[in-house]
Amino acid sequence: MSKNLEMQTEQKIIGNTLWIKVPQELDHHSADQICREADRLVRERDIGEITFDFSDTVFCDSSGIGMLMGRYKMMKALGGTVRAVQVGERVGKILMLSGIRKIIQVEQKAGGKTE
């Protein structure tokens, strides 16, 4: 409806890596916003890798899995990769359950038992 529904997600491009800071809660609502923005940047710029930084993320549902799978398929078609980094305990559990670790590189947060 208005501008305040726009994403508060941080992102930057370093070299040919698109770095995206995933918000605290990754659900259908926030995943949709991230996908739109990421897809636009991948179309417009020369991106070889998308890194999703989960350091702030304490909630993730199957929409987050859909987001990762979709970006994986897109990047694979372009010869690129997708990584999930700084993954905390809860998100790690969701990613484990989904089986997405078989196709996407997942790096846990150092120290393990945070949040």
Partner: peptide, 14 residues
Amino acid sequence: ELERSGMGFLFMEA
């Protein structure tokens, strides 16, 4: 087409 993971019910059950 909406990039749903198809895991919604799986997570509810889990």
